[in-house]
Amino acid sequence: MARALPQPRRASLRRLYDPQSGEELDQALVLWFPGPASATGEDLAELHLHGGRAVVAAIETALGNVKGLRPATAGEFTQRALMNGRIDLTQAEGLGELLSAETEAARRAAVHASEGGIRKKVEQWNDRLLNVSASVEAELDHSDEEDVAAVIGSGLSYRRDCIALAEELERALASPSVERLNEGIRIVLAGPPNSGKSSLINAMTGRDVAIVSAIAGTTRDRIEMAVTRRGYSYILTDTAGLATKTDDPIEAIGIERARQALDAADAILWLGDENPDIASDASIILIHARCDEPERDATPDDRTPVSSKTGAGLSVLWEKIEELASRHIPAESAVFFNERQRRLITEWKNRLEAAAQEEDLLLVGEQLRLARSLCDQITGRAGVEAMLGDIFARFCIGK
């Protein structure tokens, strides 16, 4: 016989029975969350079962026989919370990013987003935008009234406000995307043939990922290895030696791919004794490789001595890499945006810049109106139906 529901939000120990056969299935903790004060905004019950597969399967079968019940689809609870106004779209995306976080930096960013950090930042920007819009609309509607004209004249101009907000959006876009937190910092090992690149990547990863040989030109293609260290993710890339000239067509392809890797690098570990001739915006750490060899015991002042054989200097090298990583991906950054949000913020910035260039106040007002609609798209108040399926398809079942 069915008993009364437990008190809301208080765990109660109950026996669970099959509603058709009456068979006892488990003794479990039951929690009852009446809507709208629940995670989804709807009536919600949680069953905390014993973890055996047979127990879970029996409960699922019994629930499946109850009319009106069905298994939840991927992300359905979060989607219901979004549709019922319990969370906004940035929080839903933050939960999805938390499920896929692979580094400490990604986890922190996802938790911040899921707790409303992105929404709060976007709403701060939107409040400033609304103030500018209100000023422009007031001037359009009441410019002939002396008291309104005096208020407008004593305030900040719309151009200055638009430019200031656009510059703040630009600074936000300068931070890496959420996706980048998991992809990692791209570290490329480069230098002439036989300079010790393959030995160094093996020492840094603790695995024999690259073939090491005294024969110059052993590495013909890029070798990549993912490493996670102290909350940062890295992609280490071993490249073919940058020979000044080669008649080997395979080696030439390897050199070209090495240069492509250098172009995309965030940081370069240069193992050549000569200074690198590389046109790149990446940070460069000059390595004095094979410092354990007697003829190489003198280290130039601008070089970091490293021995792949003895491990000498590896900890110092990692400290320098981590210092670079902290500049590329600040460990305590306030807000990281995903690619969808960054695309909308970029368009928002462009609208503000266009408004600042306009002379006709009607056109200024239209640009600001379009900018406000972009804010609504970021938080999910408008124009999100088409993307919901793609967002929640990445969630686990139910969540």
Rank of each mutant, 00 (worst) to 15 (best):
E359T: 14
E295H: 09
P71W: 03
N65F: 01
L324D: 09
V151F: 04
L98M: 15
A101V: 10
E46H: 10
I211L: 09
H48L: 13
E179V: 01
R303M: 09
I87D: 12
S333W: 11
D277E: 07
L44P: 02
A267S: 08
E24P: 00
S100G: 09
E42V: 04
A164L: 09
I215V: 15
R159T: 12
E76S: 11
E93C: 09
G389C: 00
D18N: 10
E97P: 00
D238K: 11
A214E: 14
R290V: 00
A354V: 07
A393G: 03
G313H: 10
G68R: 13
L181P: 10
T90Q: 05
T237Y: 12
R372P: 00
V335C: 09
L16E: 06
A174M: 14
E359L: 07
L362S: 11
E358N: 07
L173K: 12
E97T: 07
E167D: 15
A105N: 07
Q377P: 01
D43T: 06
P249W: 05
I285N: 02
H288G: 08
L352A: 07
E24C: 04
E183G: 01
E332G: 09
G85D: 08
V212Y: 00
R159I: 14
S12V: 03
P71A: 04
L352G: 07
N338Q: 09
G365F: 01
